[in-house]
């Protein structure tokens, strides 16, 4: 089987995953598409959204469709780094026992790791997670634990500000996407969510999602194949570099925001890692569209999610980040021209 055919087969599988999740979680097609992209670009995702919009459901649906094990941790102030790694308790015989914690428990079978309310966890916990994300391994019990197929999803609670620890900019940069999961706005979706009994029983709902559509052990290999398969033309490379420049010096591209001194807005533009993540993700988008080359549309499809959380504003404007970041990204997409 040639790699071309394999990629085509995998593309069919990827689309099936999307379709299966889409049946369980309605009204979130863009988010599902981007989670799928992150999955095949082997990137981690920072989720953001109102309480109860179905973040856990969407992740469990993905976990079921992709296969492998699912693990979920709740971020709390008193959570310690060790709590992720081991679990101590007194067994039935009254002897103290130490067992691997949620991170280690599944070993290589860990595919979907959901860290809920990551900003409630202390920075020590966050940094452990970041290391695990970057290296996909942890040393514990004098042993190197690998979980090469793991994808981390972290959720930020935006409602409470007390007793939270905002993610450092370097930490945010480790996530490929920051996805905002909105409450569905169209009438039909909201009506179905509220009145269709199928959406009330989450477990039954998840049962309807086909299990292990993908051979998840192959994910890393296929991700590499996708990256090699999708080409970027000279004009496209130029476009990406221009976008990168625009995140650093937006004024040079004629970008202006109301009431903002553009010269003093940006503390740091997107990092090289961020731009790499952008192209990786865009290649997956191109592959999902059945193309072997990147187009500006592929890039645009992932720019808001891939770059929005990677531009760092000066403190004066950091307070208005949510509003400014969106406007800035929109302006960048509107102003940076291609082909050039």
């Amino acid at each position: 089987m040639s790699s071309e055919e394999q990629l085509a087969d995998w593309r069919a599988l990827a689309l099936r995953v999307e379709e299966a999740v889409g049946r369980a979680v309605i009204g979130q097609a863009p988010v599902i598409r981007l989670i799928n992209v992150a999955l095949f670009a082997r990137g981690h995702v920072l989720l953001e959204g109102d309480v109860g919009v179905g973040k856990t459901t969407i992740l469990r649906a993905f976990s079921r469709a992709v296969g492998g094990d699912f693990e979920r941790v709740e971020g709390t102030v008193d959570l310690l780094p060790g709590d992720l790694i081991y679990h101590t308790y007194v067994d039935a015989d009254g002897k103290p026992r130490i067992e691997p914690g949620p991170l280690l428990r599944h070993r290589e079978r860990l595919v979907t790791f959901f860290f809920n309310e990551i900003n409630r966890a202390r920075p020590q916990v966050q940094s452990l997670l970041l290391r695990a994300m970057a290296e996909r391994s942890v040393t514990a019990f004098n042993e190197e634990y690998h979980f090469p197929h793991m994808t981390v999803f972290a959720d930020r609670n935006r409602v409470e500000k007390e007793e939270t620890f905002e993610l450092a900019s370097a930490a945010r940069d480790r996530f490929m996407f920051e996805l905002r999961m909105p409450t569905p706005t169209d009438y039909e979706t909201r009506r179905a969510l509220v009145f269709d009994p199928a959406f009330h029983d989450v477990d039954a709902l998840l049962e309807s999602v086909g299990a292990e559509i993908l051979p998840w052990q192959e994910l890393n290999r296929m991700a590499g194949a996708i990256q090699r398969h999708v080409r970027a033309s000279e004009a496209l490379e130029r476009y990406v570099v221009d976008l990168w420049d625009a995140t650093r010096t937006p004024a040079r591209f004629g970008i202006a925001l109301d009431g903002v001194d553009m010269e003093r807005l940006i503390l740091a533009g997107a990092s090289p890692r961020g731009i790499m993540a952008l192209t990786r993700a865009a290649r997956v988008v191109a592959w999902l569209s059945g193309r072997d080359h990147l187009t500006p549309e592929d890039i645009r499809a992932v720019v808001p999610s891939a770059l929005g959380h990677r531009i760092f504003f000066t403190p004066v404007y950091e307070m208005r980040r949510a509003q400014l970041a969106d406007a800035l990204i929109e302006q960048i997409l509107d102003r940076v021209a291609t082909p050039r």
Binding site: A235, P296, E297, D334, R335, V336, A337, T338, P339, R340
Partner: peptide, 23 residues
């Protein structure tokens, strides 16, 4: 010449007041 195409692209962008692509 690619420059010819690019010039026309810029004209489209200017006419629309934003970058225009196929979509």
């Amino acid at each position: 010449d690619p420059a010819a195409w690019q010039a026309l692209h810029r004209a489209f962008d200017a006419a629309a007041g934003r970058v225009i692509d196929a979509a």
